[in-house]
Amino acid sequence: METIKAVFSYTFREHVRNKVWLGGALFGLVMLAGGLVVSALAADERGRVMLDLGLAANEIIALVSVVFLTVHLILQEIESRSVFLILTHPVRRWHYLMGRFLGTLGAVGAGLAAMGLAHWALLKLLGWGGDGWYLAAWLCSFGKVAVMGALALLLSLALTSEAAAMAFSVFFWILGHFSAELRFVADKSGNALLRSALLVFSWAAPDFAHFDYRNAWHAGAPDPRWMAAGAVYALAYAGACFALSVQVFEQKEF
């Protein structure tokens, strides 16, 4: 536990010093530009548009950050050989990986929270009042971030190329929005090979339907059971990716 804590702490600090908070600044700019456009074009729907725009910008910035950071997380340490020095101490490899991953998730989560708070305050100024819903939306975004971070970590270790890992992460991210559609097409397909391939992809890619709060949003407050199922899915998917990452990392010689 002590080693995970130590690695978590230096990873978090490293990200903060490497200016991960610039994502928050970018978010501020998006909101400012969005606000200007909205006030000019949709004065009567200002609150709703600001809500959707803010949540989307918040999520996209956090997802781009987490993919970028986790893809570089271990590969950069291998390149600079700092991993080499850490592993010559009594550190189990999975502790190191866990500390690095949680440190990154913590830094991105803190950024997501800061952007969320700023956005929420802006919505309050505009007279919006769905606090519980906003928290649910934030938690769904964080679930997506955790899942994508774990997947990007696995891809970076398995492919050992930052560019390839980044490309595959984006591919799976896009695929993750169409899991149900992939399964539907697989069911309708007469070709056994195509059917199997589609099913494999639909199960391998994250299923973002578990975090799609927008459907619940317009139907009222999200059901706590639906939220719990999303949390279980995020833990299971991220846990499976992490376990595979550990397997790959254990085989590496430095």
């Binding site: 002590e2 080693t3 804590k5 130590a6 690695v7 702490s9 230096y10 600090r13 490293e14 010093r17 490497n18 600079s80 050989r81 700092s82 080499f84 020095l85 850490i86 010559t88 101490h89 009594p90 550190v91």
Partner: peptide, 30 residues
């Protein structure tokens, strides 16, 4: 490894940390 000290040929240290933070990290790991 808790009973071994190792210094590699080049200092493979994380440059974003201060000297104190770096040694604090390795003290915790050791």
């Amino acid at each position: 490894l808790a009973r071994i000290g190792y210094a590699p040929e080049a200092a493979y240290l994380n440059k974003s940390l201060t000297g104190r933070e770096n040694l604090r990290l390795f003290a915790a790991l050791s």
